[in-house]
C-alpha cells in the first residue's frame, strides 16, 4: 500500500510540476521589452520582407519603461526624438499613442536570431505592416 501511495504521490507531483513549468515557460514580453535597445533596421511590408538598414551613424535607440518609450536618433545633426505611451491589451499586443497623438497597434515576438545574433525582439506594427528589430546595444 505504501508503494502504491508513493507512486500516486509521484504521479501527482509530476503533473503539478509540469503544469507549473508550462505556465512559467511562456515568454514575459512585458518584462522582456523593458530596457534600452538599438534599432539598426526594419522590414518594410512584412510579407515582402524588404530590408531597410539605417546608417551606422544614424541608428535609433529605443528605451522602454513600464508604459512609456522614447526613440532617439544617434546622428546629432538631425537629432530626432520621438516616443509615447503604450497600454498592453494582450500578452503580446499593445496599443501605442505617440507624443503627437498618432495611434497604432504593436505586436511583439521573440527574434529568431536567424539573421542577427544581437536581435532580441521583433515589433510588428499592425496598421503599417512593418517589422522593427530591437537589438542588444553593442559596446563602443
Amino acid at each position: 500500500m505504501k508503494s502504491m501511495r508513493s507512486f500516486l504521490c509521484l504521479v501527482l507531483s509530476c503533473i503539478m510540476t509540469l503544469s507549473l513549468a508550462a505556465c512559467g515557460s511562456s515568454t514575459d514580453f512585458k518584462e522582456g521589452i523593458k530596457g534600452t535597445w538599438s534599432l539598426y533596421h526594419y522590414y518594410e511590408n512584412a510579407e515582402a520582407g524588404i530590408d531597410v538598414f539605417l546608417d551606422d551613424s544614424n541608428f535609433w535607440t529605443v528605451t522602454v519603461t513600464d508604459n512609456e518609450f522614447t526613440i532617439t536618433a544617434k546622428d546629432n545633426a538631425e537629432l530626432e526624438e520621438n516616443g509615447g505611451t503604450f497600454v498592453w491589451t494582450k500578452a503580446d499586443e499593445a496599443e501605442v499613442t505617440y507624443n503627437d497623438g498618432t495611434r497604432c497597434t504593436m505586436r511583439i515576438s521573440e527574434n529568431s536570431k536567424k539573421h542577427n545574433e544581437l536581435g532580441a525582439w521583433d515589433i510588428y506594427v499592425v496598421e503599417t505592416n512593418m517589422y522593427y528589430v530591437l537589438e542588444i546595444p553593442q559596446e563602443d
Binding site: 497623438g101 498618432t102 497604432c104 496598421e127 503599417t128 505592416n129 512593418m130
Partner: peptide, 11 residues
C-alpha cells in the same frame, strides 16, 4: 481622428 491608407498614417 486618424486613419491609415496604404500603410501610411494620416491625421
Amino acid at each position: 481622428v486618424q486613419f491609415y491608407k496604404n500603410q501610411k498614417s494620416f491625421t
